[in-house]
Structure formats: structure tokens, C-alpha cells
Design a protein around this nucleic acid. Structure first.
Length: 456
DNA sequence: TCTGGGGTCCTAGGACCC
DNA sequence: TCTGGGGTCCTAGGACCC
């Protein structure tokens, strides 16, 4: 219980750049007239709230609340409602990441709307100026407001960004004296710490830990015994000792999923076949786009958590003989899995597929580059290439070339309902990235409090 | 009536082996 | 009556993240 801990990091800073109200901010890029209005974005099937503008937050709309419970509130407050438009969000996300990469050599994208930046050398010395500049440039080039948290470790940087958002700072730094860090962390509840979720937040108070500062002061060895090595690492990170190493291997993708809740409940296997075939094709398109191959597919179907019937979830998987990115081979396997797990009776609410055992083609021993690769496989691979190219040209939507098994009926019960989806904007950043002093950027800057203050 | 989707990592426990 | 101990590998499930 007396082992030595490594010394806190003394150089290099982590910054977390976090897009504010990301999905809501994306919708507003093309609808500047909606700026300043309460606005929410809903999950697929317009199920629940997954993003809110500042004005919507101010109305007390919480994350994850089912939309049907909010209809009156929406109507009474003229809340603007959008279905989710992930094509739009990923396009904007890519733009934000490009801007960050332009200004910082080491960027680790963490989620669709967040990235860690490692600041050393001049970027560390001038961290404050850098953050101010970055906030301004991301707004200019990507039209998205961001907040930045800065500290010696990623976990402290996440806390700094929490403080930044809470107090409406643009950037906030926790690269401070021990006493300052303790003082600030004593104002933050422990569940705000990155890595402390619902369960831990309920259990930690039993050990006298209710604030981030108390967790920071806790004995890491004891906490590891009681909880897990994850919490041990978190405590050290809070003390400024970097424990999260995002090495080359950890950026490797391990699984790829495609799943969807149905627009209506589904009972017939014919409908499930179409849904599963569609999700399989979607997963394989993404797999090929990332230049990967897979060997195993899992198929899962389930009823609703909220139905009166008992919850039913069934799952099966199949390994292919060889690593592949062939939609036909995986679809055939997925259909066999579905036959295995399908039972008549339950009202199915959701289905999905998960590709596992992912590799890069050059990591597969022999088989993919083999001269004895079967000619059929070779032709299939070329067929997939051709389909991908044609579909890329046709753009999104129904012109897509696809397998008959995915079905043609747009009214099929399993298809999702999205009543408030924004259009598929034709994307060209140039016209909306005019020089400062004109147009939407000026409007953004004229808003009260932009650029936001920062606390370093 | 109506409740998201896509990830990662850790642990406990069983199977198996010597 | 009393029936080892320790290692590895695999998997299911939990917890967490956005």
C-alpha cells in the first residue's frame, strides 16, 4: 500500500476542444435566422432529445428526454425541432477537425464533436493566445462555437472544459498550482469527472467522496482494490500524472455497428430480413470506406424496453471462412443468423448488425493477397468497388445501387420516421467562409459575448 | 400512441492445462 | 470425512463515453 507514484507531468499540455451544442450548432449554420431561438435535435424516429441550443437548455429541457413528453413545452415556447441529420453533422465535424489539424500538429479526435490537442513548445508557451485564436478560427472556417479546456492531463483538461462551459468561458486552464486546482475541484461534483458514471457516482459518497477534489485526494491503491484500475488511473490523472496513453494501437477500430430502431413494431421475418440486409450493406460500405476487412458478423433483434410484453433480445453470430468486405457474403451470413434467432410473436422494435474481428487487408496472413484467391472472390471484390463508385457519384438517397434483399418499399414498417429533418444541403464551404467583417461570421461576433472570455 | 446509435475497456468466471 | 495450485485464454456482461 506504499508503492511510489510517478511524478506529475511538468511539461506539455492537453487541450480538449469541444463544440458547443454541436448538432444544434450544425443546424443553425444554414438557418442563421434560427440563432437565439430554443432549438432541439431529436434521435432517430424523433424519439428523444439529443442536442439543445443554449436557449432550449434555459427552458429546462434535459438530454435524453422522450420528445412526446415535451410536446406541450415545445408548443408553448416555440421550440424549433429537428430530426437528426448525421450526414450534415459528420461533414461539419470533418471540417472542424481539419481546422484543428491545420493549427496543431497533434490532434486526436475523440468523438464527433471533440478532439484532444497536445500542446508543447511554442503552443505550450503561448497556450492562452493559441486558444483564443483557435476559437476564432474554428468559428470562421467551420461556423461552430467551441470551448477549450487546458491542463496537464486529459482528465483535468476535460474538467477544465466543464468549468469553461459552466461559466461560459471560451477557454479555461487548470494548469495551475496544486492549491488552485484543489480549490476549483472542490466546487465540482464527482460525477462530472471523466470516467465517473452513474454507478460510481452512487457508490463513491459511501466512502466520503462527493467532489472532484475529494476523489483527487483519495488513496488510489485502496480505490483500485474497491473499484477498478480505471478509477486508479483517474485519480492519478486528477493529480496531474498522465495515465491515458493513446498509442498507435488504441486508435485501431475494433468493431463496426449498424443498427436502428424501427418506425413501427415489426413481427414478420420478411421485414426483419429487409432491415438486417439494409444494415449489413450499410456496415459493409463503411467498412470498405475505411479500407478494412472483417471476419465475423453478429445479428441482434429485440423488442422495446418500454412495452408491456416481456423484453426479448436474441443474438447470433457467424464467422466467415476468410476475412472479407463483400456485402454479399456477409448478407448471406446475416440472413442465416436471423433465421436462427427469429421467433414468431414478439413485437420487434430494433435490429442491428455488428462486425467484429476487424483487420487491415495487409494484416491478414496470406489469404487476401494470395494468388490462389478464388476467382469468385476476386470478382466480388471488383463488384463492390464498382457499386461504391457508382453510389458515390449518385450521392445520398434513393438513387443508390443496392441489393434486392434490402427491399424497395419506402413505407415498410421498419423504416425510420424523421418528420423534421433538415435538407441535404449541397456542401460548399467557400461561400460561407467569407472574410471577417461580413455575413454570418460578423453576425456571430456581434452576438453578445463573442469571442468569449478565457481564464488562464 | 411515441423512449438513439456507436463505440471502448475492464472484470469475473469458466474451461482447460500442467 | 478429508480431494492442489497456478497459469492462460476466452467470453459475457457491466460500466463508461459521446
Amino acid at each position: 500500500m506504499d508503492q511510489k507514484l510517478p511524478a506529475p507531468s511538468a511539461q506539455g499540455l492537453w487541450a480538449i476542444v469541444d463544440c458547443n451544442n454541436f448538432f444544434a450548432s450544425c443546424e443553425v449554420i444554414f438557418r442563421p435566422d434560427l440563432r437565439g431561438r430554443p432549438l432541439v435535435v431529436l434521435s432517430s424516429n424523433d424519439g428523444c432529445v439529443i442536442a439543445r441550443s443554449a436557449e432550449a437548455k434555459a427552458l429546462g429541457i434535459r438530454m435524453g428526454v422522450p420528445a412526446f413528453q415535451l410536446q406541450k413545452l415545445f408548443a408553448a415556447n416555440d421550440v424549433i425541432v429537428f430530426s437528426s441529420n448525421f450526414r450534415l453533422y459528420s461533414t461539419v465535424s470533418r471540417r472542424v477537425m481539419d481546422v484543428l489539424a491545420h493549427f496543431c500538429p497533434r490532434v486526436e479526435q475523440y468523438s464527433i464533436d471533440e478532439a484532444f490537442l497536445y500542446l508543447d513548445g511554442a503552443l505550450e508557451v503561448y497556450a492562452e493566445e493559441f486558444c483564443v485564436h483557435l476559437i476564432d478560427r474554428v468559428m470562421h472556417y467551420a461556423k461552430v462555437p467551441v470551448s477549450i479546456g487546458v491542463a496537464r492531463t486529459r482528465t483535468l483538461a476535460k474538467l477544465a472544459s466543464h468549468v469553461a462551459k459552466h461559466y461560459r468561458y471560451g477557454a479555461f486552464s487548470l494548469a495551475r498550482s496544486e492549491a488552485d486546482i484543489d480549490r476549483i475541484l472542490s466546487l465540482v461534483r464527482v460525477e462530472e469527472v471523466w470516467g465517473v458514471g452513474r454507478k460510481l457516482a452512487r457508490r463513491l459518497p459511501l466512502y466520503g467522496i462527493e467532489t472532484a477534489a475529494q476523489l483527487r485526494a483519495a488513496d488510489p491503491w485502496r480505490m483500485q482494490q474497491i473499484f477498478s484500475v480505471t478509477l486508479f488511473n483517474t485519480i492519478l490523472e486528477l493529480r496531474g500524472i498522465p495515465m491515458i496513453d493513446v498509442g498507435a494501437d488504441s486508435t485501431r477500430r475494433r468493431t463496426l455497428a449498424a443498427s436502428r430502431s424501427f418506425g413501427e413494431r415489426v413481427t414478420r421475418i420478411e421485414d426483419l430480413r429487409e432491415a438486417v440486409a439494409t444494415f449489413t450493406a450499410q456496415a459493409l460500405r463503411r467498412l470498405r470506406k475505411e479500407g478494412l476487412v472483417a471476419r465475423c458478423i453478429q445479428v441482434r433483434i429485440r423488442t422495446s424496453y418500454f412495452a408491456r410484453q416481456p423484453f426479448v433480445e436474441r443474438e447470433a453470430e457467424e464467422y466467415l471462412e476468410r476475412y472479407s468486405s463483400d456485402t454479399l457474403a456477409f448478407t448471406a451470413a446475416a440472413m442465416r443468423c436471423l433465421e436462427q434467432i427469429y421467433q414468431e410473436g414478439p413485437l420487434y422494435a430494433k435490429a442491428g448488425v455488428l462486425l467484429t474481428d476487424l483487420k487491415r487487408p495487409d494484416q491478414v496472413e496470406g489469404s487476401l493477397l494470395d494468388l490462389d484467391r478464388p476467382p469468385l472472390e476476386e470478382r466480388r471484390a471488383r463488384l463492390m468497388q464498382v457499386m461504391d463508385r457508382i453510389n458515390a457519384k449518385c450521392g445520398p438517397g434513393d438513387a443508390r445501387l443496392r441489393l434486392a434483399s434490402e427491399g424497395m418499399n419506402k413505407e415498410a414498417p421498419w423504416r425510420t420516421n424523421q418528420a423534421h429533418k433538415s435538407p441535404d444541403y449541397v456542401f460548399d464551404w467557400e461561400p460561407i467562409t467569407e472574410e471577417p467583417g461580413s455575413g454570418p461570421l460578423q453576425a456571430a461576433k456581434a452576438r453578445k459575448g463573442f469571442p468569449p472570455p478565457n481564464v488562464f
